[in-house]
Design a protein around this nucleic acid. Structure first.
Length: 412
DNA sequence: CTCCGCTATCGTCATAGATT
DNA sequence: AATCTATGACGATAGCGGAG
């Protein structure tokens, strides 16, 4: 349990309006990222599955903690503390960024469902940040743009204490170039389809590593703030980034679900989760009993999977109760996958074939959804990067202007 | 109101690559 | 080798806005 605590991510931005809707499960494979989805799941490669089984039998869904190199990058860390505001609409994030010998304290107001910026006070503060501004935005990525144009990942490292459920801390650490390149290679290896795109981008300029995205997403916004770090010192003081007239807001919050997550589909259309959502997880080998996973959200915005073992009668009752109710994915609830049985006649063979086909279609349907969600996130990441670079460019242009003016004044 | 074009979303198929 | 997963491609469908 203690080790699990260290894997938790405490989201710096709190929101009382959080609710998860239409969370779908992703059965992440080994080393596979589950990326966040507008409907629910998330996975950032810099996070490690952190499902915590509590003593009371509940399973606490936690963001995936950082990878192995976290420990090596903790040296330069920042602390972000969320202070819930009355009404929960706005949170204030305090960030302490060690810079040289003096820590730099910054503060920012985080708007739910919007990009926000943590900006150090004054220009000197920015400089002491290593020309970085930390941009917190919702449902997006974390990366830091260095002055040389390179974009370096920012890792979220939890500092939560106790059971870590309160989400009272975020630690940011700038990865080393080696970490970044290593992680990028890992990501590229895991995402062959994006390899080409990333390589193309890499050939022209340093590319933000998708694998360093840290996304804590909920449909309603709890803890879904992402952090951008940029060296832009002038143009990031708003909650949105405007590029060519287009305002970039981050996506809605997504719930981060560990690698072993279960996709839950709720019928909620308004993004709110009322009460428990349930999903039948029937053990294929034991038809006599089933496990209902109840999916609940606590007041602190955290989500729980509460497995409840049911008897056959209870399970049947449950399936009857949910019969005809379809999820947002169109899947009827209460569908139980039966184990492959011995085929005794052509009819059974046909049924088995049909069942397998249905199963395959079902899996592929979900996979397609996941894939599209990832692609959207990827595009969003690129858009965010464009925005950051745009702002960098603006800042550099402004700086050049001022330097030119200064030079002209000296010569006069 | 109807038609048309555009866009977004979804389901399905095919297939490459990863995993068992 | 069999199986699974991710993803590109394709077609179907719905929604929306503009033109007539």
């Amino acid at each position: 349990m203690d080790t699990l605590v260290e894997e938790q991510i405490s989201v710096a931005v709190s929101s009382s309006q959080s609710a998860i809707d239409r969370a779908t499960t992703s059965s992440n494979q080994t080393g596979q990222n589950g990326t966040a989805q507008p409907t629910g799941i998330l996975s950032a490669s810099s996070l490690v599955s952190g499902t915590q089984v509590r003593g009371n039998g509940t399973i606490l869904l936690m963001p995936r903690a950082s990878e192995k190199n976290i420990a090596t990058t903790v040296s330069s860390t920042t602390q972000a503390i969320a202070v819930p505001q009355p009404g929960g609409a706005v949170s204030i994030v305090h960030v302490s960024i060690p810079s040289g010998t003096q820590p730099m304290h910054v503060q920012s107001v985080i708007q739910p469902n919007q990009q926000s910026v943590i900006q150090a006070p004054g220009g000197t503060g920015l400089q002491s940040l290593g020309k970085n501004v930390i941009l917190l935005n919702k449902g997006s990525v974390i990366h830091s743009a260095e002055g040389d144009g390179g974009v370096h990942p920012v890792q979220l490292i939890t500092t939560a204490k106790g059971d870590g459920c309160d989400g009272d801390g975020i630690t940011l650490a700038l990865s080393t170039a080696e970490d970044e390149s290593r992680k990028r290679r890992e990501i590229l290896a895991r995402r062959p389809s994006y390899r080409k795109i990333l390589n193309e981008l890499s050939s022209t300029e340093p590319v933000v590593s998708l694998g360093t995205n840290v996304e804590v997403k909920e449909e309603s916004g709890t803890g879904g703030d992402n952090i951008h770090e940029s060296d832009t010192s002038t143009a990031l003081a708003s909650n949105t980034i405007t590029v060519a007239g287009t305002q970039y807001h981050t996506a809605q919050g997504l719930l981060k679900v560990p690698a072993s997550a279960i996709q839950l589909a709720t019928g909620s259309q308004d993004g709110t989760l009322q009460g428990l959502q349930t999903l039948t997880m029937t053990n294929a080998g034991t038809a006599a009993t089933g496990t209902i996973v109840q999916y609940a959200q606590g007041q602190d915005g955290q989500q729980f999977l509460v497995p409840v073992t049911l008897s056959a009668a209870d399970l049947q009752a449950y399936q009857i109760r949910t019969a005809g109710v379809t999820t947002s994915t169109g899947l009827p609830q209460g569908v139980v996958m039966t184990p492959a049985s011995t085929i005794q006649n052509p009819q059974q063979l046909a049924e088995e074939t049909s069942r397998r086909r249905e199963h395959r279609l079902l899996k592929n349907r979900e996979a397609a959804k996941e894939c599209r969600r990832k692609k959207k996130e990827y595009i969003k990441c690129l858009e965010n990067r464009v925005a950051v670079l745009e702002n960098q460019n603006k800042a550099l242009i402004e700086e050049l202007k001022s330097l030119k003016e200064l030079y002209c004044q000296k010569n006069e």
